[in-house]
Amino acid sequence: MKPAAFAYCAPTSLDEAVRALQAADGDGKVMAGGQSLMPLLNFRMTRPTMVVDLTKIPDLSFIEQRGDRVAIGALTRHADLEFSALIAERLPVMSAAMPHVAHLAIRNRGTIGGSLSHADPAAELPMLAVFYSATIRAQGPAGRRDIAAEDFFVSALATCLDPDEIVFEIEFPVLETHTGWAFEEVSRRFGDFALACIALSIETRDGAIVDARVAVMGVADTPLRLRDAEQALLGARGDAAAAFGAVVRGCVAPNSDIHVSADYRRALIGALAEKAFTRAWQRAAGGPK
């Protein structure tokens, strides 16, 4: 299990990195933390002629507040997100999700830009990007462009990035008025990819939901924002957990794999939705954070 031969470069600027990818003419691969790429190289499932290592590029690892958004540099490690006070305060769902991202050793090396660009349908960060309606910012030969998260993920392990485009930062809008939220994930073992996962946040006024955000993953080729489920929550009160579970179940058409069947996944996402609703409602009502 050794990779086929490839060339390697570690440019010190984004411009240089893009040029290196251009020169590879579609056969280049970007490496950041290497946590997904290295196994693919070793299995020879991907055979780039050139690996462009981004880790020598300065200023791509940061977490900062920009008005009503939180901007995160593409090279920011999962562990930095996990332990960031700013994330905990402004993006609580992300903060709750980070301990579920693989294992500690992987979180110490893996990066947000890498996870989004790899686009595993059962990974947390792509779902969080969709959940928060993040803007994914990429640089290519033609300059920079902003991509909405929901447009970014095309299918399993596929994004809308061109082969010579590189994600350099992501902006997450803060859901300022959403006082209730929950993140529920079930994986076979601690640290495994999710069998099913849901993120939910709600804004309530006078004992009813006036705004809601729902995203799920592990139940489709890409993470999904469930707008029908969000709609269904408008006006709902604290007794709506079961109804919400049923709506979410109805919104997904998961696949079967060797671990679990589509029926199982559908039942599980419904159960997680109920749990998430109860938890989010408690938080919105000023219950335990």
Partner: peptide, 16 residues
């Protein structure tokens, strides 16, 4: 063989 890696051949870890 469909369970050819430790992702798909599920052994319990210490946490389980």
């Amino acid at each position: 063989l469909l369970s050819a890696s430790l992702v798909d051949y599920v052994i319990p870890s210490a946490v389980e």
